[in-house]
């Protein structure tokens, strides 16, 4: 199940009406953060606050580790992921030098995790970025335009959210045979709705800020207000949201194969491996299920940890500002 509409464990936080942003009760805010931050650039302070977040650092470590595993691993651990080898099917781990065994057509599972992981990470990353980019544009324009334009644009988003992605993908699966670029586009297109809502809400609040009002009063146009003032100030929200979106895209990709929209053999991704293993549930071939499942859980929770830590880091910065 993907968060699709609601924003999941991470992004959900934002939609709570946040009156007091300071979590520290009664602590005098003004001077502390201010003095501590003097002279340091924003990026540096975010990085420093992030590095103090243990779960975030663990998440970052996992992501780096998995990227190395997928992209550097094959240089060390050579396997054939193209040809079917019927002599070596369904081998358990450790057998004939296959550390994690082989699958039902004889591919080495460990090597296949590396090979499939490239697709999972690349598709997830690209789709997440497309979703945030589209959503930001849509949300910022809607939020700044206001009036009936905003109403119309946001009703379209509502309509998109009302049709759950899994249902849509299942219908799409009856129509097309997927490729990597197609999956990127499809996942991107079903994921931009939540960022659009977030950015719109942020834009509406920024629109009334004095510094945007001043631009209007001095005769500056809407383009300047949106691109010089509003977009730079939603960058933090975008970065945090992009992290969650990548997590969601990878998770959604894991469902794609399950729904029959997986990459055709011999290509694969982690979701493809996992859903391929379902048929062996009762045969005890756990190595076809567990490793792929575990890496998916690992990478998705890692991105969520990072996103959560990033949001905290950005919010500390916001506190120091006022």
């Amino acid at each position: 199940m993907t968060r699709g509409t609601t924003g999941g464990p991470g992004t959900g936080d934002r939609s709570v009406p946040a009156a007091g942003s300071s979590p520290e009760l009664g602590a005098p805010r003004p001077a502390v953060a201010h003095r501590a931050g003097r002279g340091a650039g924003m990026a540096r302070r975010v990085a420093r606050d992030f590095s103090r977040n243990r779960l975030g650092m663990v998440g970052l470590g996992i992501i780096v580790g998995l990227v190395l595993f997928c992209f550097v691993g094959p240089l060390v651990y050579h396997t054939d992921q193209v040809h079917v080898n019927l002599a070596q099917v369904d081998l358990p781990p450790g057998h004939s030098g296959h550390l994690l065994g082989t699958d039902d057509v004889g591919h080495d599972i460990l090597g296949r995790l590396m090979y499939g992981g490239r697709n999972s990470l690349e598709i997830g990353l690209a789709a997440g970025v497309i979703a945030v980019w589209l959503g930001t544009l849509w949300g910022a324009v809607a939020g700044y335009a206001g009036g009936w334009v905003e109403g119309l644009m946001m009703r379209i988003v509502d309509a998109g959210i009302a049709i759950p992605a899994l249902f849509l993908l299942l219908v799409v699966a009856t129509m097309v045979t997927p490729t990597v670029p197609m999956l990127i586009v499809i996942i991107g297109l079903v994921s931009w709705l939540v960022p659009a809502r977030l950015v719109r809400a942020e834009t509406v609040s920024l629109r009334t800020r004095d510094y945007v009002q001043v631009v209007k009063a001095m005769g500056g146009g809407a383009t300047r207000a949106v691109f010089r003032h509003i977009v730079p100030n939603v960058v933090g929200t975008m970065i945090v949201n992009a992290t969650f979106q990548v997590a969601d895209a990878i998770l959604l990709l894991a469902y794609v194969s399950f729904l029959g929209l997986g990459l055709p053999q011999p290509q694969t991704d982690w979701g493809g491996m996992l859903s391929n293993g379902i048929q062996y549930t009762y045969d005890g071939y756990w190595w076809m299920i567990i490793p792929a499942g575990v890496v998916i859980v690992l990478v998705v929770s890692a991105f969520n940890f990072v996103g959560d830590a990033l949001r905290d880091a950005f919010e500390v910065r916001l506190q120091g500002r006022s």
Binding site: M1, R3, G8, P9, L55, A247, L251, A254, Y255, F258, G271, L274, S275, G277, I278, T281, W286, I289, G293, I296, V297, L298, V299, V300, S301, N304, F305, D308
Partner: peptide
């Protein structure tokens, strides 16, 4: 928190498989 993120990150059908197994 860790439990929640892991629970969230687990594809439902993977969780179902584990429970069935």
């Amino acid at each position: 928190t860790t439990g929640a993120f892991v629970g969230y990150a687990t594809p439902v059908y993977f969780l179902a498989l584990l429970l069935v197994i």
